[in-house]
């Protein structure tokens, strides 16, 4: 077959068989998946927004680091991070810190690290998360600088 042809080519495979294989693959991951879901529940029940807000001091540099770490540990829907970020801004926390916080919330995941390492390997997981941590700070700083430049 020509390797330059279309990506999707059905070679008379059984869809039912593929469905079963895919379901078994997901099923085998269920203990790890349930563990992560359990940790998400613990985090959301035991850590409230006042606790998160108390981590910030008002110093932009320190708060950007704190925002990245706090966002990386926090779990939940991205929408919650926007609402929390909006409240932090109103309380006078710097935009650098808030940008890092909402970005780390979605791109980093301390809680899901065991699952990521199990599925994609420890080496890749560490490399990806270290880069994501550094880029979260870079993107947050670049965003605020760009807004300031625009003004």
């Amino acid at each position: 077959m020509d390797a330059g042809g279309p990506l999707f080519v059905n070679e008379r495979r059984s869809y039912r068989k593929e469905l079963k294989k895919a379901a078994i693959g997901i099923l085998s991951l269920m203990p790890m998946m349930l563990a992560i879901v359990g940790l998400v529940g613990i985090f959301q029940a035991f850590v409230n927004k006042e606790m998160l807000a108390s981590l910030f001091s008002g110093d932009a540099v320190r708060d950007t680091l704190v925002g990245t770490v706090a966002g990386g540990i926090a779990v939940g829907q991205a929408l919650i991070s926007y609402i929390l970020g909006g409240e932090l801004l109103q309380e006078g926390i710097s935009l650098y810190a808030v940008a890092a916080f909402i970005l780390a919330w979605v791109t980093l995941g301390v809680v899901q690290l065991p699952l990521e390492a199990e599925v994609l390997g420890v080496r890749f997981t560490v490399l990806r998360n270290v880069l994501a941590f550094l880029f979260t700070i870079l993107v947050a700083v670049a965003t605020v600088w760009s807004i300031q430049w625009l003004r």
Binding site: M1, A3, L7, N10, E11, Y15, E18, K21, A22
Partner: peptide, 24 residues
């Protein structure tokens, strides 16, 4: 979402040509 992932994974296996995936 996991249900969608199962159907999507199965569909990819059903139609996907591994040699083409390597290309794209």
């Amino acid at each position: 979402i996991l249900g969608v992932v199962v159907f999507f994974t199965a569909a990819l296996h059903y139609w996907l040509d591994p040699r083409k995936l390597a290309k794209h």
